[in-house]
Simulated scan of single mutants.
Amino acid sequence: MTRVGLVTIARGRRAHWELQTAALERSLRRPDERILVTMGDPSLARAARDAGTTAVRETDGEEGLLPLARARNLGAQAALDRGVDVLVFLDVDCLPAPALVGAYEAAARAAATRDCLLSGPVTYLDPPPPGGYDLDRLAELDSPHPARPAPGPDEVQLGGSPDLFWSLSFALTADLWGRIGGFHEGYAGYGGEDTDFGWTARARGVPMAWIGGARAYHQHHPVEDPPRRHLDAILRNGALFHRRWGTWPMRGWLDAFVDEGIAVRTADGGYARREQDPGLPRRTPQT
């Protein structure tokens, strides 16, 4: 029997975690192990333990940066230590459709997709109505993000650019996790680690596959576009990606920072924070 472990990382978002828990209780196939890694949030860790989560790990970031890559690696290792064959990663904001876990498990066993990095369509939900989201009617809100492949619920789409990989919802076998080697822990804070993981998978011969049955619904929360409060982390992580792969990721955000005057293009074609003229008022990223 295939054992499936579901890994989530979080800081804050306790209400989102609790609604995800309620959605998982509606799953047609529940995970055998559920792992939560909290990042500097002991109250959420206690709540998860009280709710019976299989394993909870805690980690703190450096200089206030969330250790997203390290947290996912810790979660994966906790699941592997419990003998899982398939790893499913689900963002704390994501509500799984009832078929998500089972669809990922089936794809991880099928000959055409078992050696692939598996991703499912994600719908970004509008703000919840009074009373919150109705978990029994999420399928009526299905409208997957247009920037990613979105095969129908009974369809699979093979291939695709590693630039499209995102960690909101994905799965792979334990063997493939070992081949890829996890997330690069040099990334800290917001941005870059997902694309690096996708590129690493491609470099190690692991293609992508989009699993239409593994649908998820991203709970609404305010966002900033471009994410100005993450400027320094994006510049730092973008430079690391460039050193590793010879190109810059997150170009849309980086170019937007340049347009807004909070970053500049450098002589070597890269990006850097704009140095402030001491005679001018200091412009800082909005929070």
Rank of each mutant, 00 (worst) to 15 (best):
Y271W: 08
L235P: 05
A55N: 02
L117C: 00
P98A: 04
P281D: 15
S169R: 09
A45W: 01
Y271L: 01
G213C: 07
H184R: 10
G191V: 02
P149G: 08
A147Q: 12
L135W: 05
L231E: 04
A174H: 00
G182Q: 02
E62D: 09
P249Y: 14
R179I: 05
R57T: 01
R251K: 13
P285A: 11
G191P: 05
H184C: 14
G83D: 08
A79Q: 03
R228C: 01
P281L: 15
H220V: 07
E140C: 02
A97E: 14
N237H: 06
P127D: 00
P285C: 11
G64D: 10
L44W: 14
I180Q: 01
T195H: 15
D32C: 05
L231Q: 03
P127F: 09
G40D: 14
G198S: 13
A97T: 04
I35R: 00
F89W: 11
R109L: 13
H184F: 15
E18H: 15
R109I: 06
H220S: 11
Y217A: 01
T123Y: 08
L168S: 09
D91W: 13
V7Y: 04
L44N: 03
R72P: 05
D163A: 13
R274M: 00
W210L: 00
G64K: 04
Q77N: 10
P227K: 13
T195W: 11
Y133T: 13
G182R: 11
G191H: 00
P222C: 05
T53F: 12
R273T: 13
P31K: 06
V223R: 15
P285N: 09
E260R: 06
M1E: 12
S143I: 05
P31Q: 07
R82F: 00
P144R: 08
G40C: 10
F197C: 09
R215I: 08
V156N: 03
L138W: 06
G64N: 11
L100Y: 05
R244L: 14
E224F: 04
A108K: 04
D134V: 07
G181Q: 08
L19I: 05
G181E: 10
I35Q: 00
T123F: 02
D126I: 04
G192S: 09
Y217T: 05
D134K: 02
R179F: 05
V223Q: 14
L95I: 11
D91E: 07
Q276P: 05
A188W: 01
M208Y: 01
H145K: 11
P146I: 10
G192C: 08
G246S: 11
A147S: 15
A263R: 03
G102P: 02
G120E: 03
W210P: 00
L125M: 11
R34C: 12
G186D: 09
P129I: 08
T123E: 14
D134W: 02
A256C: 12
D81G: 08
L254R: 02
E140Y: 00
R13Q: 10
R236Q: 06
H16P: 04
L125D: 08
R30I: 06
T54Q: 04
L141F: 07
V4H: 03
L240W: 02
A201Y: 01
G64I: 06
